[in-house]
Computed example of a mutant assay.
Amino acid sequence: MTPAAIGLILVSALLHAGWNLIGKRTAQTVRFYAWAMGLGMLIFSPLLLRVWPEVTALPSAFWWLLLASGLCQTLYLTGLAKAYRHGNLNIVYPLARALPVLIVPAVVLITYGQSQLQATDLIGMCLIILGSLALPLVCWREWHWRDYRTPAIAWVLLAACATAGYSVLDSAAIQLMKQQGMDAFAAGSSFVVLQAAACLIWMLPLVRWGFGESLRVVPDFGWTLLAGSFIIGTYLLILVSMSMVSEVSYVVALRQVSIPLGVLIGVIWLREPVSLPRLQGLVVMVAGLFLVSL
């Protein structure tokens, strides 16, 4: 990976951990994320207007990818909101970030029939997964498979699978935009606004009729606005970095540098408990991240 791509991903990781802290601390509802996506879309909409003629010329295949990506984003945010309602940040966040590291390469391999990952990349990804398995544990001697059979873990699995889905779809969409002559920033900046709109197409009916939540009142406007700008901003950086790498699996793996940040935030700001297995799992995950970033 290029230094520029790594730098963009590291900044994105800081923003990502930040909006997850806001989501956990302020509101654990899908309505919160719907408002955040809408406000973030409005903030970044000038970026779309700047390249609107090029966007309208994109082929129909792009718009189908965009619609599918919006659905995956909706499932991701729904899973995240529900998981935070049932679990701590220092458990939910690392699991939701780590599991796509294993899922995305499998999807890429199945879809394209080949992968550019090296042996060290695969070892690193396996370490990230092994480390994530230790996060729900309080004591090794009390380990039981039932530790993973909780509502929070079920919602995390939904969020992780949805993350893998939109990562692969977005990578294909960005490559399609580049093939049409758009540069990396133009493609990423316009797509992130379009994706927010596509997400709202799925999310608004789900919030209103699926969960019966009212959309009339913004849940804590200031924090929702900040979260929305972080959500769109962090993914803008990721989309631009996707255009700089040969395979999306590298981006998905290195993004997990936000995992230790999420754990530290949960412990320091939210006063969440931390156990020895969780600390050991975090160390293993960081080692995996180091291998992937080489």
Rank of each mutant, 00 (worst) to 15 (best):
T2H: 12
T2D: 15
A5V: 06
A5K: 02
I6P: 03
I6W: 06
L10F: 05
L14V: 11
G18H: 07
W19S: 07
N20I: 11
L21Y: 03
I22W: 10
I22R: 07
K24M: 11
R25Y: 14
A27G: 15
Q28M: 14
T29I: 09
R31A: 12
F32L: 14
A34F: 04
M37H: 14
M41W: 11
S45E: 12
L47F: 11
W52I: 09
W52T: 15
T56W: 12
A57D: 11
A57I: 12
L58F: 00
S60Q: 12
S60N: 12
S60V: 14
A61V: 09
F62H: 09
W63G: 02
W64M: 10
A68L: 14
Q73V: 10
L75M: 09
L75C: 03
T78W: 05
L80S: 03
L80Y: 04
A81T: 02
Y84N: 01
H86Y: 07
L89Q: 01
L89V: 03
I91G: 10
P94K: 06
R97D: 01
R97Y: 01
L99W: 10
P100T: 00
P100V: 00
V104I: 03
A106T: 04
V107G: 03
V108K: 06
I110L: 13
T111Q: 08
T111P: 10
Y112E: 15
G113H: 01
Q114K: 10
Q118K: 13
Q118S: 12
A119K: 14
D121R: 14
D121Y: 04
M125Y: 15
I128R: 11
I128Q: 14
S132L: 06
A134K: 06
L135R: 04
P136L: 06
P136Y: 00
L137T: 02
C139M: 14
R141V: 13
W143K: 12
H144K: 10
R146W: 01
Y148F: 08
R149C: 10
I153E: 07
W155T: 01
W155F: 10
T163I: 08
A164R: 05
G165I: 00
Y166M: 10
Y166S: 07
Y166K: 08
S167K: 07
S167Y: 02
S171R: 13
A173G: 14
A173S: 12
A173E: 07
I174A: 13
D183C: 03
F185I: 07
S190Y: 08
F191K: 07
V192Q: 15
V193K: 05
Q195W: 14
A197H: 08
M203K: 05
L204D: 11
P205E: 04
R208L: 09
E213S: 02
L215V: 06
R216E: 06
R216K: 09
V217Q: 09
V218T: 06
W223R: 13
W223H: 06
W223P: 05
L226P: 03
A227L: 02
G233Q: 01
T234E: 13
Y235H: 04
L237H: 00
V240W: 08
S241Y: 01
M242S: 03
V245D: 03
S246R: 04
V251C: 00
V257G: 05
V263F: 06
L270H: 05
L270F: 04
P273G: 00
S275C: 04
L276K: 15
P277L: 03
L279A: 14
L279S: 07
L282Q: 01
L282S: 12
V283I: 13
V283F: 02
V284E: 04
M285T: 11
M285Y: 02
V286T: 11
A287I: 14
L289D: 13
L289S: 15
S293T: 15
